[in-house]
Design a protein around this nucleic acid. Sequence first.
RNA 1: UGGCCCCUAGUGUAACGGCAGCACGACUGACUCUGGAUCAGUUAGUCUAGGUUCAAAUCCUAGGGGGCCAGCCA
Length: 574
Amino acid sequence: MADSPDPAPNADKDKEKAKEARAHFIEQIIRADLESGKYGGRVHTRFPPEPNGYLHIGHAKSICLNFGLAEKFGGLCNLRFDDTNPVKEEQEYVEAIRDDVRWLGFDWGDREFYASDYFEQLYQWAEKLIRQGDAYVCDLSAEEIREYRGTLTEPGRESPYRNRSVEENLDLFRRMRAGEFPDGSRTLRAKIDMASPNLNLRDPVMYRILHAEHHRTGDQWCIYPTYDWAHGQSDSIEGITHSICTLEFENHRPLYDWFLDRLGVHHPQQIEFARLNLTYTVMSKRRLLELVQEGHVRGWDDPRMPTICALRRRGYTPESIRAFAERIGVAKFNSTIDIQVLEQCLREDLNRRAPRAMGVLDPLKIVLTNYPEDRVEELEAINNPEDPSMGKRLVPFSRELWIERSDFMEDPPRKFFRLAPGREVRLRYAYIIRCDEVVHDPKTGVVTELRCSYDPQTRSGMPQQRKVKGTIHWVSCAHALSAEVRLYDHLFRVPDPGAERDWREDLNPQSEEVRTNCFVEPSLRGADVGARYQFERLGYFCVDPDSTADHPVFNRSVTLRDTWAKIQKKETRK
RNA sequence: UGGCCCCUAGUGUAACGGCAGCACGACUGACUCUGGAUCAGUUAGUCUAGGUUCAAAUCCUAGGGGGCCAGCCA
């Protein structure tokens, strides 16, 4: 009996092994490098945004990846702004990016860098390449360079300026820096191979003349390095071990390798992964910018946007976004994630943490005819059934109440568990009531009021002798706080906007519905901007900055899962 | 049309020549004073065709499908 072998150690080992094996491919590469001692056991990554727009959920994936990997392997992750194009970049974006990364929960310590920090070093390295005969000043215009480059199927032709002497190149390049030539008149090019099947290797431009004010270096420079020339070397300077980037830079890797090798400097390993695509949204910076500029949304932080600041305003938590990044994984396959995965991550997080409250979005008045007119009861309600430590609160109850219009049907279908003429329902944390009479507007026929009776023996907490199928939420009319609630739906009405027609035509005209006539329980008075609640049976809501002390504005972050809606949908399909 | 990369349940992702697994979804049931949450269960997959091998999702070849590249953008 005592001698039966204990399977636990092996099972644990297997589990451990399985867990380790489940690591995504970038992690596996890093583990291998750690084992072989490739970078002296170091892991150093970086998140390199260009400060020309706001960060979106796709960037969040990259941020979580880069900072997460560093954290996991006891390494570091830098924040570096790739600011090589002064005409597009602004300080405003730098600050927004910093806020967003910090909000997501990551810390880059004192390692906030800028590609522009390296302009002088880059310049010196460019001279070195010229001296080595690896770069030359080219007088071809932009159009001519394009013509000379060839096409996907035909090789390019060599520039007539390709074989200038080192002395002439150095002289010309220094005069470019000195500002002797107008914009676009000359470039510095790497001398590689005009016949390469990889177009990035057909003598790519390293410097262009641009008499533009840079947000950090001012008018110190009139030549600016291209991204291709700056990026790999910036990583090298910072001692980055693993340069993680998206798939479209795969074709550039041979170029970056070439630069690093010619320079003979520290050579990080570039690893490419698939960027995030989400259904019912757009993610390209250009389209996001157009959404803002053309007024399809109210701004970068409009809660319908996929930007980090918009998700924040909408009520997303950093934890939910990080959980999302974890859940979707990392691979090289170009996939599209269903936006519901993101929404579900929010629900899971908020279900555990958000206090509950009652709010009525589409009010219908009910009068409890057998409840004394001047009576008010303070009923006990649980703040979060998932977390008893969040305690309880008192909610006032009285004769006249608001309930949700959709919780009543005059002619209910089967499976409708809510209120209907002659039917009973429980008022959450209160009594079971019965609908005795329906009052209509004599002109329109619209239901204006329900006259109900309550059963005093059924107050919440009393020993229950009978059960009812449905429980609905309510707010006492006399005590209700009036509120505005903004209901959001997907910004686009199709999963892949722009696939069939201009993406603008795919905008969802019902992506925002503002309800100004809502009532919430009085405990919500003075709720802090950014506070998140679950309105029972409806969804999660977040206090918008547009709120005032007496008139809160709530954004619906996400609905609760709605089984009833699902049943309805199925019924109508039949 | 040239080059590079990719293809595993509905979706996403593991398996690194040796039993195709996990998560989410969907479906069924239990429970429930949120039609929420939770719990239990079911469902379903290696793009195709050859080859190598005792053994192929994995290696090779061909085909199919998809992505990226012809900015002095990043």
